[in-house]
Every structure is written in C-alpha cells, then in structure tokens.
Amino acid sequence: MIVNSNMILPKISVITVCYNSVKTIEQTILSVINQSYPNIEYIIIDGGSTDGTVNIIKKYESKIAFWESSPDKGIYDAMNKGIKIATGDYIATLNSDDWYYDSNVIQDIVNVINSNSNIDIIHGSINICDIDGNIRYTILGDKEPWKNIQKYMPVWQPTMFVKRELYEKYGFYDLNYKIAADYEFIFRVINKCNFYCLDKIITNMRDGGVSNTRLLYINKENYKIRKQYNVNLLFNILLYCKFILFTSIRILLEKMGMIRTVNIIKSVINRNKIVLK
C-alpha cells in the first residue's frame, strides 16, 4: 500500500483473546496482519492454552506488538488486560473464532475516523458462520442503537472500534457479567458518546458452537443488565420470556435439522436486520 505523507494515520489496536483455539486462531491472526492499513498494534491475550495455540502465536510473533499466555478470569478479564496494554487511538476486540471480512476493513474504519474525529464507536454488519466458516446469515449494523438498546444488544462486539478515551473515562468491562459484559458497556455509554454505523460487513463470526445452555445464560445476564439500567420491569420480563420461548423452538427445530427455518424466524423477529444466505 502506498501511503500519502499527508494522510493522518491513527493507531488502531486490535486485541484477540483466546484459549485452546488451535483450530481457528491462525485465520484470526492472518485477517489482522494482512490488513492493508499500516498503523496497527496487534495484541493477543491467551488464557494459558495447552492445545498448540501458543505455537501458532509464536509463528507470527514478529507481527504481534504484544502477547502473553497466562490464566485469566474469563473472556472479559482477558479483554480488559489487553485494553490496559493498548496504546491505539481506537481499540477493537477480535475473538479467536472471528476474522475480518476483508483486508481493507481497518482502512475503511480509519477513513471514517479521519472524516469525523468526534466519533466514539464505529461498528457495522457481521456475518454469522457455522463451525466450518460457512456463512449462515448476515446481521446488518444498527444505525440507531440508542433506540434499540433496551430490546437487544444493537452493536456487535466483534465489529466495534472504540475510542480508547471512552474506556479511560467510563471504565472497562464489568467482570460481574461472564457473557454479556459488552451489552452492559454499551448500556453504560449509549447516551454519552457518538456512534457511527459503517455500511459494510466488518467481521465473520463463528456461531456454530454456541450451546443452547449458553444462550439461556446470556438471556439471564441481559435481564439483569436491563434491570440495572432501570428498563421497565414488565417489558423486561416479557423480553425474557420471549427469548426463552424462541430458544425452546430453536432447540426443537435444530433437532429436526431445520436450521434454515431457525434463521427465517430470526429474520422475522429482527425485522429485516438479518439477511439470509
């Protein structure tokens, strides 16, 4: 890439947290180090993997600004470690099951930053993939997240690029939440910062391995978060019950091999936020 000397090159920190991710981590790493944008600080926080993940990290360590492998208290504890180390103007968190959609993603993000320095969080669309990386459906970025925050997480964490000052001012991820701390963080800052939804697929995310037990646990944490931020109690209970019902239907349909039907139901519930493949 030829860089114009007059271009502003903000530093972008990308943090990957992982644990025993030997099957997927290389794809994640390559999607970062092969970006066309030059000023990237790549940080990997490994939770003490024993399956060969560390060997893959070492293979690319010349392209990694910082990495460590040691036990942590979960995914958000690892993310917080990385955020505290990061020196970039904006910080992204890309999990070891995820990979950037193309090599120009970060350049496109930087173009937005250079056009408006007042933007605090940039996000976009995301492909949801099966365990083998095949795209199942696309969730479009939410252009008005402040309108939908009470109903669901309107900003997908693997697509987010957050101004570092935001973490410094409002704090890191709350470790009281094991799965939905990103939802709590967005609730915390939703009325205090400026969002920009890039009309582009930012990230591919594997969802094939998500268990129904984990989905129910997410629902429980989401309920607690909405309660913490004083969402109407009846509305909150109805959302909780709706999710339980949908998860029960999903379990039944998946047992019958009707995955596409599950995705169609999702698209109806999300009112065209989902594009089926």
Rank of each mutant, 00 (worst) to 15 (best):
N230V: 01
C129P: 02
I269R: 07
I43K: 02
L234D: 03
E221Q: 14
I264F: 12
I122V: 13
E68S: 14
V105N: 07
I259G: 00
M256G: 01
T203P: 02
L215A: 03
M79A: 11
G171T: 09
G88I: 09
N134G: 02
V262L: 02
T213L: 15
A181H: 05
I33H: 09
M1W: 04
L216V: 01
L252G: 00
L234Q: 05
N222G: 06
T203V: 15
T50M: 10
N134P: 00
T50L: 11
F161M: 06
S69G: 05
C197V: 05
I43D: 06
C197F: 06
I25C: 07
K277G: 14
N6T: 12
E184G: 04
I264H: 11
C193V: 15
L166C: 13
N204S: 05
S36Y: 03
I2A: 11
D174Q: 08
S5D: 12
L233A: 05
N111V: 03
G48P: 04
S62L: 07
N80T: 03
V32I: 15
G74W: 13
T16N: 05
R136E: 14
I149Y: 11
L276M: 07
R136W: 12
V262Y: 01
D89T: 13
I119R: 12
N55I: 01
I43L: 13
D199R: 09
R206Y: 08
M1Q: 11
I218K: 15
G124R: 10
K73D: 13
